[in-house]
Protein backbone atom coordinates (compact mmCIF):
# COMPACT_ATOMS: atom_id res chain seq x y z
CA UNK A 1 0.00 0.00 0.00
CA UNK A 2 2.82 2.30 0.96
CA UNK A 3 4.59 1.37 -2.24
CA UNK A 4 1.66 2.28 -4.45
CA UNK A 5 1.25 5.53 -2.52
CA UNK A 6 4.84 6.54 -3.07
CA UNK A 7 4.55 5.57 -6.74
CA UNK A 8 1.47 7.73 -7.09
CA UNK A 9 3.25 10.59 -5.39
CA UNK A 10 6.22 10.24 -7.74
CA UNK A 11 3.93 10.27 -10.76
CA UNK A 12 2.20 13.39 -9.50
CA UNK A 13 5.58 15.07 -9.17
CA UNK A 14 6.58 14.09 -12.70
CA UNK A 15 3.27 15.36 -14.06
CA UNK A 16 3.78 18.63 -12.25
CA UNK A 17 7.21 19.01 -13.88
CA UNK A 18 5.69 18.17 -17.28
CA UNK A 19 3.17 21.01 -16.89
CA UNK A 20 5.82 23.34 -15.63
CA UNK A 21 8.25 22.61 -18.47
CA UNK A 22 5.53 23.07 -21.06
CA UNK A 23 4.53 26.37 -19.49
CA UNK A 24 8.07 27.75 -19.27
CA UNK A 25 9.03 26.70 -22.78
CA UNK A 26 5.78 28.20 -24.13
CA UNK A 27 6.52 31.47 -22.35
CA UNK A 28 10.10 31.43 -23.60
CA UNK A 29 9.20 30.82 -27.22
CA UNK A 30 6.14 33.07 -27.38
CA UNK A 31 6.64 35.56 -30.20
CA UNK A 32 9.58 33.79 -31.81
CA UNK A 33 9.33 33.20 -35.54
CA UNK A 34 7.41 30.10 -36.57
CA UNK A 35 9.91 29.19 -39.25
CA UNK A 36 12.70 29.10 -36.77
CA UNK A 37 10.66 27.20 -34.19
CA UNK A 38 9.69 24.65 -36.80
CA UNK A 39 13.32 23.98 -37.58
CA UNK A 40 14.16 23.72 -33.90
CA UNK A 41 11.22 21.42 -33.19
CA UNK A 42 12.32 19.01 -35.94
CA UNK A 43 15.86 18.96 -34.55
CA UNK A 44 14.60 18.37 -31.01
CA UNK A 45 12.15 15.67 -32.08
CA UNK A 46 14.91 13.81 -33.89
CA UNK A 47 17.17 13.93 -30.85
CA UNK A 48 14.40 12.59 -28.58
CA UNK A 49 13.64 9.83 -31.02
CA UNK A 50 17.32 8.88 -30.97
CA UNK A 51 17.24 9.21 -27.15
CA UNK A 52 20.19 11.53 -27.46
CA UNK A 53 19.91 13.55 -24.28
CA UNK A 54 23.17 15.37 -24.85
CA UNK A 55 22.21 16.62 -28.29
CA UNK A 56 18.75 17.63 -27.09
CA UNK A 57 20.18 19.70 -24.25
CA UNK A 58 22.83 21.09 -26.55
CA UNK A 59 20.37 22.19 -29.26
CA UNK A 60 18.07 23.78 -26.71
CA UNK A 61 20.91 25.46 -24.81
CA UNK A 62 22.19 27.17 -27.95
CA UNK A 63 18.81 28.80 -28.48
CA UNK A 64 18.50 29.81 -24.86
CA UNK A 65 22.01 31.22 -24.72
CA UNK A 66 21.23 33.36 -27.71
CA UNK A 67 18.27 34.83 -25.86
CA UNK A 68 19.81 35.40 -22.47
CA UNK A 69 20.14 39.10 -23.16
CA UNK A 70 16.56 39.55 -24.34
CA UNK A 71 13.49 40.22 -22.16
CA UNK A 72 13.03 36.45 -22.00
CA UNK A 73 16.28 35.92 -20.12
CA UNK A 74 14.59 35.02 -16.82
CA UNK A 75 12.35 32.45 -18.44
CA UNK A 76 15.22 30.92 -20.38
CA UNK A 77 17.34 30.86 -17.24
CA UNK A 78 14.64 28.80 -15.55
CA UNK A 79 14.35 26.55 -18.58
CA UNK A 80 18.13 26.16 -18.73
CA UNK A 81 18.20 25.05 -15.08
CA UNK A 82 15.49 22.47 -15.71
CA UNK A 83 17.08 21.31 -18.94
CA UNK A 84 20.39 20.68 -17.22
CA UNK A 85 18.59 18.20 -14.94
CA UNK A 86 17.46 16.15 -17.93
CA UNK A 87 20.85 14.46 -18.00
CA UNK A 88 20.16 12.77 -14.68
CA UNK A 89 16.74 11.30 -15.41
CA UNK A 90 15.89 7.95 -16.94
CA UNK A 91 15.18 7.56 -20.66
CA UNK A 92 11.43 7.21 -20.03
CA UNK A 93 11.22 10.38 -17.97
CA UNK A 94 13.54 12.21 -20.33
CA UNK A 95 11.12 11.36 -23.14
CA UNK A 96 8.22 12.87 -21.16
CA UNK A 97 10.08 16.04 -20.20
CA UNK A 98 11.58 16.56 -23.63
CA UNK A 99 8.21 16.22 -25.36
CA UNK A 100 6.59 18.60 -22.91
CA UNK A 101 9.25 21.19 -23.83
CA UNK A 102 8.59 20.56 -27.53
CA UNK A 103 4.84 20.85 -26.89
CA UNK A 104 5.48 24.18 -25.20
CA UNK A 105 7.43 25.40 -28.21
CA UNK A 106 4.77 24.22 -30.67
CA UNK A 107 1.95 25.84 -28.71
CA UNK A 108 3.76 29.17 -28.27
CA UNK A 109 2.56 32.23 -30.15
CA UNK A 110 3.98 33.11 -33.51
CA UNK A 111 6.07 36.26 -34.04
CA UNK A 112 9.30 37.87 -35.27
CA UNK A 113 10.91 38.78 -31.92
CA UNK A 114 14.63 38.22 -31.47
CA UNK A 115 15.05 36.10 -34.52
CA UNK A 116 18.16 38.03 -35.42
CA UNK A 117 19.88 37.00 -32.21
CA UNK A 118 18.81 33.42 -32.65
CA UNK A 119 19.84 33.32 -36.26
CA UNK A 120 23.27 34.72 -35.38
CA UNK A 121 23.85 32.05 -32.75
CA UNK A 122 22.57 29.37 -35.00
Amino acid sequence: MRNSNSKGHELEKINEIIDNLKKISKEGFDGISDNYKQKLVYTLLNTVRARDKYKFIDSLSRVMAANMKSDKSDTFKKLAEKTAELQKVSDEIFMKYAYSIVLGIISSKNGEVNTTNINKED
Binding site: V41, Y42, R49, Y99, I106
Partner: peptide
Protein backbone atom coordinates in the same frame (compact mmCIF):
# COMPACT_ATOMS: atom_id res chain seq x y z
CA UNK B 1 8.18 7.94 -27.76
CA UNK B 2 7.93 7.21 -31.48
CA UNK B 3 4.15 7.66 -31.41
CA UNK B 4 4.35 11.10 -29.80
CA UNK B 5 7.24 12.00 -32.07
CA UNK B 6 5.27 11.24 -35.22
CA UNK B 7 2.24 13.03 -33.82
CA UNK B 8 4.21 16.17 -32.97
CA UNK B 9 5.75 16.20 -36.44
CA UNK B 10 2.27 15.98 -37.93
CA UNK B 11 1.06 18.81 -35.70
CA UNK B 12 4.07 20.95 -36.53
CA UNK B 13 3.15 20.77 -40.19
CA UNK B 14 -0.45 21.90 -39.63
CA UNK B 15 -1.56 25.47 -39.50
CA UNK B 16 -4.97 25.31 -37.80
CA UNK B 17 -3.97 26.73 -34.43
CA UNK B 18 -7.21 26.00 -32.52
CA UNK B 19 -7.41 22.39 -33.51
CA UNK B 20 -3.72 21.98 -32.91
Amino acid sequence: SVFVNILLKILQSKKEKNRR
